[in-house]
Design a protein around this nucleic acid. Structure first.
Length: 466
RNA sequence: GGUGCCAUCGCCAAGUGGUAAGGCCGCAGCCUGCAAAGCUGCUAUCCCCAGUUCAAAUCUGGGUGGCACCUCCA
């Protein structure tokens, strides 16, 4: 398995810290607003990574945090005159449901900041004890970036000399402009926790380091976890700071491999709250099937920037349709998990830093070959078994084709309409038998008016939602 | 300004030294009462210039054009 390590900037052969096991930590959402397509992309990428690693036989422990302590959450709670917990629980629940719709499996561990405070206190204390952190007169605790010789080694950034020298006169503030808060003292009545460092709130970067120590860290390994992931924008400062905290506060570095996914843009522009062009998942899911969104968002390489547009999304729908049409041709036949060459090749390309384009090309080729065989050798039992096992392999590794194929094609059509369509098809079949094609064509028009397509096959007439 | 990434057919997109995958669209055909679906065939020399090499989309240098991070952000 080759993975591109975004810190070393090369593809590296993956070697786990413990044979057969993998620890993976991914930065999850701050639950103060609806998730957008970018959150979906990130979750999908790591869902795919976990599936591929598991297919290789690794036992993966996957943790993705929920940030439920944050200034933006507090702001929203005040604005809406709601309890903070009400906000965080609501958006956590929405996030879960939306991820389910995308076929993103839940991580094994989903730690929350509010449940990880003791781990954070421990880490802060260690950093203070080792002179990597200091307390200001205001009661804040800062990480001393100058005390970490390797600071900025992750993001390969060069710290400006002026910045370094920019020592602040007042002792109540931080020593260096790059220093970041581990603990922020809070004087108001918003959201505050008691700590050995006084009442306050943790800095954002701290929770990830603390949670990793608490839930995943290998005590005697060189790295706390095998893989740490997140969106490309997190590399600096978030991951840089996490790495510094862990490096200085524990006896190991944070992660052996760093994986960062690319961005989702809309009309060539970055989605952002400030630009007001966020495409929220809840809105996307109203228009498009979750599995189509899954296919679309995964259809280009995870590190590339992704430019969302509806035309390309509809192409993804067509490609997914082809999987389901093949599945429909084999409807009702027993499942099979026979190993095939196709599966071997699929896993091989996905093992090269998740080369999804090559994987999709293999799938299209498999579908075309299978359709051709079914067209010509309709009764070939062994071949059918192979195709079925290939389809279930795609389901397992990529999460495509998980639904019942009839339900997939008829989703969103109510029962009443389904009955009407079925009746019209019966009438049309009668007209066709009588060779009354004028009538049968007229009936077809009526059927198409429901926004569905029909197809005559030797097994009868089927319909699909357009 | 600093750091880094990218530029492949009308569109999306692999390939990163050995002579251009795949999908969409389009065209032609098979199948069909006609369609739809499915199948078959056809469609690019890789932003520009120079260099290295027996050989470059792939390496080097220089352009041009996009983009990201440097502040909360997936």
């Amino acid at each position: 398995m080759l993975l591109f390590d975004s810190v070393q900037k090369i593809k590296r052969e993956f070697q786990p810290l413990v044979a057969g096991k993998i620890s993976l930590y991914v930065c999850g959402p701050t639950v103060y607003d609806n998730a957008h397509l970018g959150h979906a992309k990130s979750a999908l990428v790591f869902d795919l990574l976990v599936r591929v690693l598991q297919t290789h036989g690794y036992e993966v422990t996957y943790a993705r945090n929920i940030t439920d302590i944050d200034d933006k959450i507090i702001k929203k709670a005040i604005e809406q005159n709601k309890d903070i917990k009400e906000i965080t629980e609501f958006y956590t629940d929405v996030f879960h449901k939306e991820m389910d719709a995308l076929g993103v499996r839940r991580p094994n561990i989903e730690p929350k900041a509010t449940e990880s405070l003791n781990a954070m206190f421990e880490l802060i204390q260690k950093l203070i004890d080792s002179n990597h952190a200091y307390k200001t007169q205001d009661g804040d605790v800062y990480f001393d970036t100058l005390s970490d010789k390797e600071y900025l080694s992750l993001s390969h950034r060069v710290q400006e000399e002026e910045d370094k020298l920019q020592r602040v006169e007042s002792s109540s503030e931080k020593k260096n402009s790059a220093d970041f808060a581990l603990w922020k003292s809070v004087k108001d009545n918003t959201l505050s926790f008691n700590s050995p460092f006084g009442a306050g709130r943790p800095g954002w970067h701290l929770e990830c380091s603390a949670m990793i120590e608490k839930h995943l860290a290998q005590p005697n390994a060189k790295f706390a976890v095998d893989i740490h992931g997140g969106g490309a924008d997190l590399l600096f400062p978030h991951h840089e700071n996490e790495a510094a905290q862990t490096r200085c506060g524990t006896n190991h570095a944070l992660a052996n491999y760093w994986i960062h996914n690319g961005f989702v843009n809309i009309d060539g522009e970055k989605m952002s709250k400030s630009l007001g062009n966020s495409f929220f998942l809840k809105d996307a899911l109203k228009i498009y099937d979750g599995e189509i969104l899954r296919f679309y968002l995964l259809s280009t390489h995870y590190r590339s920037n992704f430019n969302f547009n509806e035309e390309d999304l509809l192409v993804s729908k067509k490609r997914l349709d082809k999987i389901y049409r093949l599945k429909k041709r084999l409807f009702g036949l027993p499942l099979s998990d026979e190993k095939t060459l196709f599966q071997e090749e699929l896993l091989k390309v996905l093992s090269d830093d998740l080369n999804i384009s090559s994987a999709l090309a293999l799938i299209d080729e498999m579908i075309t070959n299978s359709n051709e065989i079914l067209d010509t050798l309709g009764k070939h039992k062994e071949i059918k078994k192979e195709i079925i096992s290939n389809l279930s392999y795609i389901e397992k590794v990529l999460g495509f084709g998980i639904k019942n194929s009839y339900e997939y094609f008829q989703a969103g059509i109510d029962e009443q309409t389904k009955v009407k369509i079925a009746n019209l098809i019966l009438q049309r079949d009668e007209a066709k038998k009588e060779k009354n094609f004028a009538k049968s064509d007229k009936l077809r028009e009526e059927i198409l008016a429901y926004g569905v397509n029909i197809m005559d096959t030797p097994q009868g007439t089927f319909w699909e939602k357009v």
